[in-house]
Design a protein around this nucleic acid. Structure first.
Lengths: 197, 197, 197, 197
DNA sequence: AATGAATGAGGCTTCATTCAT
DNA sequence: GATGAATGAAGCCTCATTCAT
């Protein structure tokens, strides 16, 4: 039949994957602009150009939607850094710098959404958060082993938490992003005893 | 019913100041134990031993109450550090250490309440947050002038934000508080180029 | 003060007991006219002259309201019969007749509401239903012992269920109530082997 | 996707009659296991192996489906009894016994579905219910004329309603089915003045 | 004949806020 | 000052029904 038309005439009918993404994007935008708690199903539906009930074709509940948003953000936050850490052509301090830059740009773009998602949503698993911690912990550990970093007996867990929270602060106030990133990179270096000659 | 007049045996009639304090304390306790969003007027009233309507004799709205709570917390967070910074018998690095310890203990005690108040409540003024920034900024500035800290041309605003957020991270995970505080103090030292001989 | 006015000017403020009764009455009326499932909170509130939210000052949930309605009906259904059964000045067959009449008039008045409440609402306890069964079972048992009834070895439980359901049937169709009651009384007599000379 | 044309390997295309039956059977099963109100279109479709929308190719609305279910049940309830009543090789009391047994077994099998269908669904016509009444009324009338039953001037309509409701009661509580049936048969005999010598 | 994404009315429930007492 | 019954807007969710494919 006429089943060949892959592009529907208007946007009324969409494949589940597309719709799911549209909804998540709408939710993310709302969450950024109005806060997570104000991100109601009604608002999301409106922003996504759907009826309220249609949200439930893609998410079992508001909690589920929020969890999906969280997972989505985490995955975007972690994908590139994972690649960076695995790239053995780079020195450890270069990898660290690259990860910091990625995270900060991500945070600038989302203007703190990560932070509210981070601290507000109750999910069953802290998996992705743990993944971020592990990533940074491993990076530090291996850079130290390689003689590039010098943590001098500091509690590794505390250092990781400190850095992971610290870089977020400068992202909230729109000073020049490049300056902020550059400064934070140097702060990471100081914390990890990296001497940039 | 048969109880006729004046001064009731229990604490039913209180001066406005006392009542206000009772309400704020009840709200803070609830916010710590159940989260800011779950802190409803009904729950606060119940915890404060008042009827719902009576809350409105002391606060214009829920927002007002939450703003009061915020101001209260900031107040508590800043009072002692202000004293510390003014104490000229101490070296700048000692003052810094003392402020960090105060803030971290405060955070540990309130189990992240500060953080959610910080990030959730929309207030008209960022006054107190600005005050915290100023405090730390001044401390760093004067310590640098005194030759105790060495920030080497780093953007002061970024450093302040970095530190102000960084110390919060380790407070969420109940590793031993003393270890966390000690480690964070050393991290501050590293960031500010303080050499502890 | 002016606390003496027991009758409020209009019906806006009522004591909890009065309101609870008004709500239950409204709910019963709706349940009779439209069926239990159609008895929504919104309809009940409207019928009771209240806002939707006000229902929840008196009932924890729709289930709770329905359970309250059920309990209310059962209690009205069982109070008088209990008295009748205890009245030792009457013969057992007279008591039986009186109970049947009470139940049937009750059913006529409520036009089958008992029946839908009986079969629809999921309550934690079947207490009151069990109470009705017990009442009839005891009445039959003691009337048999007294030599007034002759059940001749029939399974007591089955007989009770049979009678308890049977009398309801004629109440649905508005034949003359008195005729129906009189006929059902005779049917009970036949079932229980009572000879009315 | 790659599956090209005609006659699919599974039972996807069916004649309307077969589909209708499949849907009704699925609905009946669901109604028995979960109650009439919980029998949603979505559940029925799922149980029948169809998409939601396809139900509407066979029934105009949910009400229509429920009415169909009702008609179906009545049909099954009345077919055999009609044959029994027409079987002139049997005495009237034997026919009565056989009808009672059929009805009770039917009720036991469906675990009260008949009852909820009976009392919940609003249909335009009470035709089938009337048919059941007529059947029993005729049976009683002709048995009385034949001298087998002795109703002694009791109101026929009331007696029919009484019996029609009465037999249902014992079916709800899983005492032994055979005992229940046997007992109810005797109760019918008592009501109709049948002496079993 | 079949699908299933989309709809939107309607149901339950919560909660900040008001106001007569 | 204090109360608490009452309100009503707003939130989450379900489900019968439609319709483009």
């Amino acid at each position: 039949m006429a089943r060949t038309t892959t592009t529907p005439p208007d946007g009324r009918f969409q494949s589940p994957e597309v719709r799911r993404r549209q909804i998540l994007d709408a939710a993310a935008e709302l969450a950024v602009s109005e806060g997570l708690e104000s991100t109601s199903i009604a608002r999301v539906a409106e922003a996504a150009g759907l009826a309220k009930g249609s949200i439930y074709l893609h998410f079992a509940s508001r909690q589920d939607l929020l969890a999906g948003l969280q997972a989505d953000l985490w995955q975007r936050m972690l994908a590139t850094p994972n690649d960076i850490v695995s790239d053995d052509t780079l020195s450890w301090s270069t990898r660290l710098s690259a990860v910091v830059e990625h995270w900060m740009r991500f945070e600038f773009e989302h203007h703190g959404l990560y932070h509210s998602v981070f601290h507000t949503i109750a999910t069953d698993s802290d998996e992705p958060l743990e993944a971020a911690r592990s990533l940074l912990a491993e990076l530090i550990h291996r850079g130290t082993d390689a003689g590039e970093f010098h943590t001098g007996g500091l509690d590794a867990g505390v250092v990781v938490e400190f850095l992971l929270n610290g870089y977020v602060g400068p992202c909230f106030h729109h000073t020049n992003a490049d300056t902020a990133i550059d400064t934070v990179r140097q702060l990471f270096n100081r914390v990890l005893g990296i001497t940039t000659s």
